[in-house]
Computed example of a mutant assay.
Amino acid sequence: MSLPDFPVEGGCQCGAVRYRLKASPLSVYNCHCKDCQRFSGAAWSMSMIVRDADFEASGEVETYDRKADSGNVIAMHFCANCHGWLWNTPPAPGIKVVRAGTLDDLNWAPPVGNIWTDSKAAWVDIDQSLVNFPKGAVDRTPLFDAWTALNSKDA
């Protein structure tokens, strides 16, 4: 598996919101918090941390501010038409957390870790060889390093 030629694109289910990622994300990982379970309708959501400067979006987006399990207030961004969850803006400056499943081609973006494993569904098996956190990752450096290491093998 190797990184694609950037830019790559993604968007919502109805196509009203599209985005372009101009460079590799900093990391891709799974989040097992209860909020992600509720928002995604699945046992976890796939998160892709991207630099603000590498992300462009078009279309009408609605924003919902939610208080996360961590206590942080996070701006959640959805398509104004189909209400598909696309990305959130965390308190950390300069980044967005994009739902990796909204990429047009997800094949190049395997998760390198998991966060909030303490709240995972009981039947979910966590790969212990990945970078895993029982709660939120206060320092995301291990996730960034794992992504860099994975993709440097492919170079």
Rank of each mutant, 00 (worst) to 15 (best):
V138F: 00
T141H: 08
A122L: 04
G113R: 06
S2R: 15
W116N: 04
S129Y: 10
A42T: 13
G71R: 12
N72V: 11
D125M: 12
K67M: 15
R66H: 14
E60F: 07
A100S: 07
P7M: 08
P90V: 04
W87N: 11
K67N: 13
G101L: 09
S27M: 10
L86E: 04
G15E: 08
D69W: 03
N151D: 05
K96Y: 11
D52A: 10
F144V: 05
G15L: 13
D127I: 02
V8N: 01
R99F: 02
A155S: 15
D105A: 02
A42E: 04
K67Y: 11
M48N: 02
C79L: 05
I49W: 05
T148S: 08
S27D: 02
G84L: 01
D5S: 14
D52L: 10
A68Q: 11
F55K: 00
R66C: 01
G94E: 06
M46F: 03
H83E: 12
V50T: 09
D154I: 07
S70H: 11
P4Y: 03
V17S: 00
P91Y: 03
E60Q: 14
S70Q: 06
K153H: 05
A16H: 10
Y29V: 05
N88I: 01
M46D: 09
P134A: 13
H32G: 03
L130Q: 14
V97A: 07
W147T: 04
M1N: 01
A53F: 04
W85V: 02
G113D: 10
K96H: 13
W108F: 14
H83M: 13
L143T: 00
